[in-house]
Design a protein around this nucleic acid. Sequence first.
DNA 1: TTGACAAAACAGGACAACCGGTCTGTTTTA
DNA 2: TAAAACAGACCGGTTGTCCTGTTTTGTCAA
Lengths: 228, 228
Amino acid sequence: MTARPKVRPGKRTNDPEGLRKRVIDVAEASFQARGYHASSLGDLMAAAGVTGGALHHHFPTKKALALAVIEERVAAAVEATWIAPVQAAGSAREGVRSVFEAVAAELEQQGFVRGCPLNNLAHELSLADPDLRAALAGIFSAWRQAIADKVRADQQAGREQDTDPQRFAALAVATYSGAMSMAKTAQDSGVLRDCLNALEQEASPASSSKGEAVAKRRRRVLRQYKAF
Amino acid sequence: MTARPKVRPGKRTNDPEGLRKRVIDVAEASFQARGYHASSLGDLMAAAGVTGGALHHHFPTKKALALAVIEERVAAAVEATWIAPVQAAGSAREGVRSVFEAVAAELEQQGFVRGCPLNNLAHELSLADPDLRAALAGIFSAWRQAIADKVRADQQAGREQDTDPQRFAALAVATYSGAMSMAKTAQDSGVLRDCLNALEQEASPASSSKGEAVAKRRRRVLRQYKAF
DNA sequence: TTGACAAAACAGGACAACCGGTCTGTTTTA
DNA sequence: TAAAACAGACCGGTTGTCCTGTTTTGTCAA
């Protein structure tokens, strides 16, 4: 965790970037765990060890803080979790598969599903404010674009000739988003593997008949249910 | 709209069921348009033409009201929009396809995407309260179950032998949920058709090579953006 | 190096609006 | 005639924001 300012009476050390980072850290975590409206600035101030004046200096309104979290953290999370791995993968399908498995494995290890940060905020805020909605929509768009671009790269290598890049990307993003929504609601990460298997079994163009013994899916109901 | 009580000074007519219905009507619409936390009981009371005493008599807490909306309205919406059409369809795939198209057409006509009521509330409330989460998870479960059951019926008729019912159902629900999330955030219902086409083009087991001229998808950015 | 000084950074209280819930009392109805 | 249904005021707590003042820091002339 980021260090709080030392308790040195009479002395003070300005650290604008550090303080701003601490606030956004706390806000990102709280928005993800409790949502935007349920996160009060008072709680965030206490958790970050920041006074009202300092918070207001860096983020004049709560909306400004949300915008910063979206543009700096949520976008980065999508970039790190999805865009970079897909670009680095051998193919678009392989990239999608690896991300699904990585996230599924992470959720199973964590034992608790907080959901997708982008979708969490998108549901709560996209109808509430046009600016926030635009920022969130931009992240969705970049996400889709990266996958579609990867499909096009595959096509230039002679593969995926019968695949529509835009549609494939939409399907991947939608399936993941919906699977995370269900996983969060049911607190069961197994849905992710169900969806991935359904995509692989059915959505692969080289599949006309593969009814071999399918590895029985494991339902992994998460044990603990604790808030943030 | 449901009628408000007549302005008859000195006279009153008790109408428990009607009043309760009016409150749930308003709550359902407000939760869908603004979300749970952004909907104040004061606004709901004013919109429904109900006093604080009456509201408290029918719904002691805000959570009780949310639970009623979820159990009576959201569940019914999923039943009417998804379960019944799928059961009535000629096959599971045909049912899924028809629902996607029906919703897409409805959204295009409305010109505004409010999102899926179940997913909207699930994102905001499933981590906030165990009871609400359980209620929401139950609706997701019934939704998946109905689709899986339809696949099994298809299988007993000799079709869909290579399809895993549970996985297919998970994929359908996840794709729809995610597509609605994107459509709401982008205020563009075209994603639904993208996802449906991707599912049909790729997820059909009888598809090994169909690269015929794909009908160019139409991107239909919705014009108006007004809050409830 | 120092001292002046303006701007940035931070502290902390104040506040008005609002929220959800409770309470008492009245009217309707079975 | 008692319970259900409804009216309406009331309250403590919280929320987001604003405001005034203090401290730190960067800048630049001397």
